[in-house]
Design a protein around this nucleic acid. Sequence first.
DNA 1: AAGGCTGTTAACAATTTGGTAACCCCTTTG
DNA 2: CAAAGGGGTTACCAAATTGTTAACAGCCTT
Lengths: 225, 225
Amino acid sequence: MEPRIKILFADDEPDILDIIGYNLEKEGYEVITAKDGQQALDLSKLHRPDLIILDIMMPHKTGIEVCHLLRQLPDFSETPIVMLTALNDETSHIKGLDSGADDYISKPISTKILMSRINALLRRFHKDGDAKIIKIGDMTIDPNRFMVILGEQEINLAKKEFELLSLLASKPGRVFLRNEILSMVWGTEVIVGDRTIDVHIRKIRQKMGIDCIKTVKGVGYKFEW
Amino acid sequence: MEPRIKILFADDEPDILDIIGYNLEKEGYEVITAKDGQQALDLSKLHRPDLIILDIMMPHKTGIEVCHLLRQLPDFSETPIVMLTALNDETSHIKGLDSGADDYISKPISTKILMSRINALLRRFHKDGDAKIIKIGDMTIDPNRFMVILGEQEINLAKKEFELLSLLASKPGRVFLRNEILSMVWGTEVIVGDRTIDVHIRKIRQKMGIDCIKTVKGVGYKFEW
DNA sequence: AAGGCTGTTAACAATTTGGTAACCCCTTTG
DNA sequence: CAAAGGGGTTACCAAATTGTTAACAGCCTT
């Protein structure tokens, strides 16, 4: 469908980093972890996450400092930033808000609730409208309805098939390397076998009836109407 | 010019009352403040606000009590009520704390987020005028009378079922992710189990008799006539 | 107090999906 | 022509998801 949402999570306590990181990944996010403020800053610039979660108390640079610095960069002026802090620290609450954070969450917090708030925040920032509909010839790919329409006919694709087709059709004519496809549809740390992509391509071709996906041998696949 | 939307905001901490009150007014709402539960109750009856925000911990009457009492009055059976809870308040996150509130929001929270959630809630309840009646085929959903009519037949849906169906039918064909459904129908702070949505969907399907709710596996549900 | 609703959860059944292995086919190379 | 490199196909199985039912706790009404 779309590249997965990246979240940078910074905390100096390894246990928390692990637990929350694990849960974020389980939610389907791509997680980048940082163990101090400086690293959070560097990795943010490198990876351009869609959401940044900063513990306030961190060595080298506090979450507040990082937040300030990030907000000065054009690339991060719109990125939602969440500050984590210890219970009832009123002063840091105020400071956290002044630093340009978008939400403020007190530790400890149940992972369920944390996930729920992160999901809500991303939903609000990310897709405040409808996703983009792709139209090529008499084919329509509508992510909002999760449907592919060919002429009069509605085609029912499974999730992975839909994501794969959406990716290819997002840039018709462009060849996607097998590696690119893997990282875009399956994610970077998921490992699947050689034939997996082929099988999904086959299923799409079969359901579509038309051969709109061309194989570029030794390279990858491309969508072509 | 139409009458401004009235919001009653009750909290026993004067600072918070000031800050949030100021921000609500800046958003264009007419704000009525109350500094304890009893006052919240009295002023609600007097001013008939379109939205009520109650802190849970308040002298004289807690937010929960006020909420209960309000819900028993016909005038307030449909008024959206938001409960403010402190994160370290054990009871607030315990399931079954169903006081009839429409959303729960944890303090501390950035004013930005709070405003956004309040706007969303008001949008959802359409309290700026009559709620719109949804008509699809020979089905009619009337939020004003809280009724669903199928042909000649009136169908009695429970509150959650009604809200869920209304949400899905508000954009026929569009897929709602499970997360979206949760935050729109249950609110972002309330945590319910995995199967809860399914069970409600099942009940709706059962009562409707027709299969107008389609499952999109791994994604969510959509209404389709 | 009894009986009805409602909203949730738990437990288990049913279904769909994604992934892999195995095998087939074609093309290119030596 | 045989071998090697890529892909295409298919059947099969395990994991992920959803459907269904029953049981429960609160509330409300009788």
